[in-house]
């Protein structure tokens, strides 16, 4: 019984990790006042870049590094269009997602049947083999620990550091931040690149640790769910962890139902995470005043010093 529970917790965390990483990145982006809807595209590019590099070098951590760089490179394209050239952020983000979906399918096509050396879960003999505590605390994929550390780091940075305060100021009132001498556009660039790097890392987790393989569109909407999670978390980092793990559990539920031998078509079960996203988003958003209070005041609005 306890082993089953521990197993469920472990699988939940494994399924929630890409959402944690991608949503934390997007949270920082949105806190700087920029809405980047391109998470799905950046995740796919990260997944395919990490996978290709690992196939050729057999070094999964080099693949992870490549995924981070590739995600950030995609984000740079977005930043040029939406931050420097002040294009509509909704349209630019959509364009980035469409580009990422197309580009990843294009470059990944020769690698569809390839195999990689995956990133393996840690195994620290005395600790990992402890009863209950071992599998509960010391037997995850390294990137799971990275995701938790990232949450703590983003929390500390945003809410307890001077740089985080400046970033939030840029998201609330870029004009004031500009007036007291902060470089609004540079700060927004940094945030957008960080978001891209996180999305790339989340993609690499999928293609190098969680699945591990490459297939076209393999993120299957996780980038969009990550965007919904930022709203769910009302732009607060630690709540991203809760939300993402909740979604991990929902993803898991579909396999549990099947394993329990209940007769439901797999397609109908696969709808669960998407339906849950809609329900949760509607539930969280219904208090419009609270959403307004928590969301960055200048979210989605381009900034130009002359206007």
């Amino acid at each position: 019984m306890i082993d089953t529970l521990v197993g469920i917790v472990a699988l939940t965390l494994a399924a929630g990790t890409p959402l944690v990483i991608a949503a934390l990145g997007e949270l920082v982006v949105e806190r700087s006042g920029v809405l980047n809807l391109g998470v799905e595209g950046m995740m796919l590019i990260g997944a395919v870049a990490g996978f290709i590099v690992t196939v050729h070098t057999h070094m999964p951590w080099l693949g992870v590094a490549a995924a981070i760089v590739a995600g950030a490179a995609m984000a740079l394209v977005f930043a040029i269009v939406a931050v420097s050239l002040q294009a509509n952020q909704v349209a630019s983000g959509l364009a980035l997602s469409l580009l990422g979906i197309g580009l990843s399918a294009f470059v990944g096509q020769p690698y569809v049947a390839a195999v990689v050396d995956p990133i393996k879960a840690i195994n620290w003999p005395p600790l990992s083999s402890l009863p209950v505590l071992g599998p509960l605390l010391f037997a995850y994929n390294p990137l799971v620990y990275v995701s938790v550390a990232l949450a703590a780091g983003v929390h500390l940075f945003l809410l307890h550091s001077r740089a985080g305060l400046v970033l939030r100021a840029v998201g609330e009132s870029p004009r004031s931040a500009h007036a007291i001498g902060y470089r609004v556009l540079a700060i927004r660039y940094a945030a957008v690149l960080f978001g891209g790097a996180c999305a790339g890392l989340a993609g690499a987790y999928l293609s190098l640790a969680f699945t591990p393989l490459w297939s076209e569109g393999m993120t299957s909407g996780r980038g969009w769910i990550a965007l919904a999670l930022v709203v769910f978390a009302t732009w607060r980092p630690y709540r991203v962890l809760l939300g993402a793990w909740l979604f991990g559990a929902v993803t898991l539920a579909q396999f549990q139902v099947q394993a329990a031998g209940i007769e439901i078509a797999p397609q109908l079960l696969a709808m669960l995470p998407y339906a849950a996203t809609i329900v949760v988003l509607a539930w969280m958003s219904r208090d419009a005043a609270a959403i307004r209070r928590h969301s960055p005041a200048s979210l989605g609005k381009p900034f130009h010093p002359q206007r």
Binding site: V81, L85, A91, L99, A105
Partner: peptide, 19 residues
């Protein structure tokens, strides 16, 4: 899938040109 690549590029260029 090169189609998707061209499509995404087109929209990004358009948004950039809109400046």
């Amino acid at each position: 899938s090169i189609t998707g690549l061209f499509q995404g590029t087109l929209l990004l260029f358009l948004l950039a040109a809109d400046v």
